[in-house]
């Protein structure tokens, strides 16, 4: 079984990133939301529940941009975002959604 936490630790080690804190970060977006952005500098946010996002959602940050593909449920990898993070939904959300990240605060 693919281990997200082990993957994150390996990534941080390979990239020489020292961690001050690792925790979950949850972001709840209300029904009707089409666009949301927030700032996450000097930290990494690994998105853990991408499959909860509608297909076609664009997540855009300073280091990575990703459009949620149709086969997201068959993908196991998790990816990190940092800086200005924006989430653009293809259509306004019909119901509220909670997006979950593993937040790495850099030392």
């Amino acid at each position: 079984m693919y281990d997200h936490l082990q993957f994150i630790q390996q990534q941080l080690g390979q990239r020489n990133i020292e961690t001050a804190l690792q925790q979950f970060y949850r972001l709840t977006l209300d029904a009707g939301t089409l666009y949301h952005h927030f700032y996450a500098y000097n930290q990494l946010l690994f998105l853990t529940n991408a499959e909860q996002l509608p297909v076609g959602t664009l997540i855009h940050s300073d280091c990575r941009a990703r459009i949620i593909p149709k086969d997201i449920e068959r993908l196991q990898g998790i990816e990190d975002y940092t800086g200005t993070i924006s989430i653009q939904f293809p259509e306004p959300l019909e119901e509220s959604r909670t997006i979950e990240f593993i937040q790495i605060i850099e030392n």
């Binding site: 390979q14 300073d62 941009a65």
Partner: peptide, 16 residues
């Protein structure tokens, strides 16, 4: 368009 570049195998984000 927007461009982001990291060098040295993602050791650091350098260019936006």
């Amino acid at each position: 368009g927007l461009l982001a570049l990291e060098f040295n195998s993602r050791k650091q984000l350098y260019i936006n």
